[in-house]
Nucleic acid binder design. Structure first.
Lengths: 152, 152
DNA sequence: GAAAACATGTTGTATATACAACATACGGGT
DNA sequence: ACCCGTATGTTGTATATACAACATGTTTTC
């Protein structure tokens, strides 16, 4: 008998599609990679109610104590509007304050923000260790090479 | 004179934060990597008004002609609700149709969808070539290793 | 066969992200 | 002093994504 799971009759054949391997795609490989790694980090960070994007902001501003907003976008390679809105949430929660220098915003970490990130760091390290364990030594070196080649 | 760009007086020091290197983070490395690669793909795909996520759906369903919705999520490692909504857009645009087999949705590519993806493939290949050129042969192998380790 | 467990799909909500359009400010050149 | 180009920030809009809660249907257990 015919299953309901039969191909709808397409009007013609699509040879280019059929001869193309979607998995050679660099973007797809990275997308799959980051989904698995993100899941690891989310699991470890869940109790802190923080995301990796937010933690990146906390760490990068925290390490410098303050940073011009424009620098944050450059260091994390984020679009300007993304930075505006990601910071907005963190400012509302009291982790950062925004001051102005010659009409340009400068982002300062607060004591609340610094304490918060310090409370998160141990679990972030655990997540990093779990991810590294999955990668192995060679996988970690490989990731470093990929990042270097792409951002060089 | 003192610049306006001076650190706000934090009430205490944050040694753990200061001694921590944010850039050892596996998730951050992958996030930076995918941002650079995504930009390459967006540039090449811009004229087709398609995103990499959409193109992945088109290719994976197109290669199989039809796929149970649950399989799509497994292959792309996407959450169920994400699949529901990503597909919804593509169905509305007429690239897929949704039929039901024992009350479970099965996604079929349409002629419109198959023609569309074939029209995109050349530019997608060009994007892939540009990304591979940036990676180099060693970087490409490194990326394959990273993906393999993470998804094995 | 009924109840419990499991798998799958959808909707509500929050976050992250980019691009376009616009606003604003700064710096140079005249 | 003024204009112009560049850099930067914000808002509008669209997409992508995950989790929680719920609904539904299937499978397993007894």
């Amino acid at each position: 008998m015919f299953s309901y799971l039969c191909a709808m009759a397409l009007k013609k054949s699509y040879d280019l599609l059929e001869s193309t391997d979607p998995w050679i795609c660099v973007a797809s490989k990275l997308a799959l990679s980051i989904r698995t790694v993100s899941a690891i980090y989310r699991k470890h960070l869940k109790a802190h109610n923080v995301t990796m994007s937010q933690l990146s902001l906390l760490m990068i501003v925290g390490k410098h104590k303050f940073l011009p907003q424009s620098e944050i976008g450059k260091k994390l390679m984020l679009e300007r509007s993304t930075v505006t809105r990601d910071l907005k949430r963190m400012i509302e929660r009291g982790y950062f304050v925004k001051k102005y220098d010659k009409s340009r915003p400068v982002i300062y970490i607060t004591d609340k923000g610094a304490s918060y990130v310090e409370s998160i760091i141990p679990d972030w390290k655990a997540a990093t260790e779990e991810a590294k364990a999955k990668l192995g030594e060679d996988g970690e070196q490989a990731l470093n090479l990929v990042l270097h080649k792409l951002t060089k």
